[in-house]
Amino acid sequence: MTRPVFRFAPSPNGALHLGHAFSALLNVAMAEETGGRLLLRMEDIDTTRCTPELEAAILTDLDWLGMNYECPYRRQSDHWDDYQEALDRLIDDEIVYPAFLTRGEVRRYITAREEEGEEWPRDPDGAPLFPPQDRQRSASERKSLIADGLPFAWRLDMQAALGHLRAPLHWEETGAGPFGETGTIRADPAQWGDVVIARKETPTSYHLSVVVDDALQGVTHVVRGRDLYHATAVHRLLQELMGLAVPEYHHHDLILGDDGRKLSKSAGDTSLQALRQSGATPTDIARMVGLETVRKA
């Protein structure tokens, strides 16, 4: 019988906080309960914000929490070729297209349409969907713009991608969605529109790299925050398009601040390092996130 494979996948672009500790410790607990393996992955495709110093700090935090994971761990920035290969497949299948519009141009276009009374569609995170101009360009125009050196990102042609499906998409959910959804969940990637698949600086994006990594690492159970629940629809679509194995998903509650918002690195929420320096123990952290039984002093 194949052992379950779990993974904790932080981004070294800031200090870990209690929300990360909850996700890490929940992965530990579920791996232990099922006799599974636990992997660590550094999701560092954002080479501007991710640094070796922050990666080292994450390792220190995880060691302090007592998290045992298999080594060597995977660092995404060591595997650009894997993502390029996946991107090339999508390009060859004509499921992605080069998008040249800048953020300013997109913003001005949508603002103008809304001022004319049009209700512009938005994705589950509340961001406006990408407009159609780049998708509608001819092959010759795209080739000319690329030859001129105009920067572009690769975006998924959602309509073309959905046309490749032979059946509706689903995933198995053992956690819960925003409204308590569990069990077999119908995936609706169309609500995301033409999402970014690769950025101009790198041959990948979060959506592409996460499904490629999970498949290459043989991950069978994805345990992550509920803020990524709706994004699973995009991941299921990419898995189907590339013939990748489909893990089971478990989206857990988020640890919220006193003001009710999700904890955030960018907002400077209290880090595990700061809690450790103030005298907290790993047992204290487990108790603070509601996982008292995971780590005992």
Score class of each variant (00 low, 15 high):
198 A>T: 10
127 A>E: 10
164 H>L: 15
179 F>Y: 13
158 M>Y: 01
102 T>K: 15
184 T>W: 00
149 G>F: 09
137 R>L: 10
186 R>D: 09
201 E>D: 15
156 L>V: 01
131 P>A: 08
156 L>S: 01
144 S>W: 05
141 E>H: 00
183 G>V: 09
107 R>Y: 12
126 G>K: 01
90 L>N: 02
184 T>R: 15
127 A>P: 09
196 V>P: 02
133 Q>K: 13
188 D>W: 06
94 E>K: 14
157 D>F: 01
157 D>Q: 08
132 P>E: 08
203 P>T: 08
196 V>G: 02
143 K>V: 00
139 A>H: 04
115 E>K: 14
101 L>Y: 06
138 S>N: 00
151 P>W: 00
149 G>V: 01
143 K>M: 05
205 S>K: 07
169 L>V: 07
116 E>F: 08
164 H>P: 09
177 G>V: 11
162 L>N: 00
131 P>F: 03
174 T>D: 12
197 I>T: 08
188 D>N: 13
200 K>P: 00
100 F>V: 10
181 E>N: 11
132 P>A: 05
160 A>K: 10
116 E>A: 15
180 G>P: 01
147 A>I: 04
101 L>K: 10
89 R>C: 06
199 R>G: 11
114 E>V: 10
172 E>L: 14
111 T>Y: 02
158 M>N: 06
136 Q>R: 13
112 A>D: 15
155 R>S: 13
201 E>P: 11
180 G>Q: 07
190 A>Y: 03
107 R>D: 14
98 P>R: 12
182 T>P: 07
131 P>T: 07
138 S>H: 05
178 P>D: 11
203 P>E: 11
137 R>E: 08
149 G>R: 12
204 T>G: 04
145 L>K: 06
197 I>P: 04
176 A>H: 14
165 L>P: 05
157 D>R: 11
138 S>M: 05
203 P>A: 03
130 F>V: 07
194 D>V: 10
136 Q>K: 10
